[in-house]
Simulated assay, not measured.
Amino acid sequence: MPSQHSDELGMRERKKKESMARLRTAAKELMWAQGYETVTTKAIAARADMGEATLFRYVPSKLDLFLSVYGDEFEQVVDQRIQAHADLPDDQLRGAAAHLDQVLESYDLLASLYTRYPELAFTFVKESFGTSTGIGRSGLEYADRWFELLESILEHGRATGALDVDDVPLVVQNCHAIYVHEVLRSHARDLPAAELPTRLRQRLTLSLSHLAR
C-alpha cells in the first residue's frame, strides 16, 4: 500500500510535469508569434499562469527554454528522416546518386524548417553551441542523431562501393557546417529566407559530387 510520503512525492512530480508542460506551451505560443528577442520571461510566466520566479525554478534562462522548445521542431525533422530512411527499400539505395540524394533530401527538410521560422532557426543555430546546461544542450543531442543518420547513409555507400570516402564523419561535419554557414550568412546579409534551400542544395551538391565513383 503506497505511503502518504510516496503519494506526496508522486503528486509533486505530476504537478512539476504539468507546470513544465504549461511553460513550454506558453513559450512556444509567444515566441512563435512575437519572436525570441521580443518575448520576456515575465510574459511567458503569466501565459503559463505562474510567477516569474517559479519559471526560473524550472529553467535556468529564457534561452534554455527556447532551445528546449525549438529543439522539438528539430527533433521532428530528425525523426522524420530516420523513419524515411528506415522505410526505404534496399533496391532504392544503390549507386552514388541514390546515396547522395538521401543526404541532400535530408538537408532539404532541414532547410524547409528554416524557411518556416527564419529568425527562430537562426537563434537556435547561433545559440545552441553556447549553453552548458542540460536543457540547452538537448539540441546537440538531436544533432548527434542527425549526424549518425547521415553517417550511416555514407557508410552504406562506401561499403557497397558506390562512394569513395575516406572519413565519413568529417564529410558529415562539413555538410552541416555548410548548413550553419548558410543560416548565419542569410541573416547577416539579409538574404531571402525562401532562397536558402536552393543555395544550400547547390553548395552541398558541389561539396559531395567528388565522392561518386
Rank of each mutant, 00 (worst) to 15 (best):
M1G: 14
M1L: 10
P2R: 15
P2Y: 08
R12S: 13
K15S: 15
K16T: 12
E18S: 12
E18I: 08
S19E: 11
S19V: 12
A21F: 08
A21C: 05
R22C: 06
R24W: 03
A27Y: 01
A27T: 05
E29W: 02
L30C: 05
L30T: 04
L30R: 08
W32P: 01
V39T: 09
K42G: 13
A43L: 10
I44W: 02
A45F: 04
A45C: 07
A46C: 04
E52I: 09
E52G: 08
R57N: 15
P60G: 08
S61N: 04
L65R: 01
L65V: 15
F66H: 02
V69N: 00
G71M: 03
E75V: 06
Q80I: 05
I82Y: 06
A84E: 14
A84D: 10
P89Y: 05
L93C: 06
A98C: 04
A98W: 01
H99L: 00
H99W: 01
H99Q: 05
L100K: 00
Q102R: 15
Q102N: 09
Q102P: 03
V103N: 01
V103L: 11
E105G: 09
D108V: 10
D108K: 12
L110R: 13
L110Y: 11
Y114R: 03
Y114I: 07
Y114L: 08
R116N: 07
R116A: 09
E119G: 04
F124R: 01
S128K: 08
S128G: 02
S128H: 11
F129D: 13
S132D: 13
T133M: 07
R137V: 07
W146D: 10
W146F: 11
F147R: 12
F147A: 10
E148R: 14
L149M: 07
E151C: 10
I153D: 00
L154R: 00
G157F: 00
R158A: 11
R158N: 04
A159F: 03
A159Y: 04
A162Q: 00
A162P: 00
L163F: 02
L163S: 00
D164M: 06
P169G: 07
L170C: 09
V172D: 00
N174A: 12
C175Y: 01
A177P: 05
E182N: 13
H187M: 10
A188Y: 11
R189T: 11
P192S: 06
L196D: 02
P197F: 10
T198H: 11
R201E: 12
Q202A: 14
Q202W: 06
L206W: 09
S207M: 14
L208D: 03
L208A: 06
S209D: 13
H210D: 09
